[in-house]
């Protein structure tokens, strides 16, 4: 049985976001909104993290950085796309250097829309991600028993 859902750590990477969503992601960890009350800690190390919060669209320079961070994270892991740019590309969809949403680079589990995404939405998305994390952990356990 995995206990990571009791204290899921998260990592944040700013794709090509305008800062708005990044600040809101940080904001949701501040005392007012406080996702940390769910046992969450913001970490800078991908190998410590269970949930990957990505803000902003994917472009040609950061696509490999994002893939690299995702690959370093250990299973089970969940990706949350924060903000409309990370979901679809948003207002910058037509810009020449933007490929699209985060799902162009890595598999995304939860989409949290908004421009900029509100802290309440982030909290909802993270809680949803925790549920998915549990499901993934259970699946992993089952397949291990099966072996």
């Amino acid at each position: 049985m995995s206990y990571s859902s009791k204290s899921p750590w998260l990592i944040h990477y700013d794709g090509s976001s305008c800062n708005g969503c990044d600040i809101e992601v940080l904001d949701s960890m501040m005392p007012l909104y406080d996702v940390e009350r769910f046992g969450i800690i913001n970490t800078g190390n991908p190998k410590h993290a269970d949930i990957f919060l990505i803000t902003g669209a994917i472009n040609h320079q950061n696509v490999n950085v994002v893939k690299h961070i995702y690959d370093q994270m250990l299973e089970p892991k969940v990706v949350v796309a924060c903000g409309i740019c990370a979901c679809t590309g948003g207002v910058f969809k037509d810009a020449y250097n933007v490929i699209g949403g985060a799902d162009k680079a890595i598999p995304v589990d939860v989409y949290a829309p908004g421009c900029a995404v509100r802290p309440e939405t982030i909290i909802d998305a993270v809680l949803k991600a925790v549920k998915i994390l549990d499901e993934k952990a259970a699946k992993m356990d089952a397949s291990e028993k099966h072996r």
């Binding site: 090509s16 305008c18 472009n59 320079q61 948003g90 037509d94 421009c115």
Partner: peptide, 29 residues
């Protein structure tokens, strides 16, 4: 260059009234 989107180019796809919203989203702070 990690955050480069090329939004200055979008003036040629959005008219001058619409572009206010793009200009505003240059930076969230």
């Amino acid at each position: 260059g990690f955050v480069h989107r090329g939004l200055e180019k979008l003036t040629q796809k959005r008219d001058y009234n619409q572009f206010v919203y793009i200009a505003e989203r240059t930076c969230g702070i």
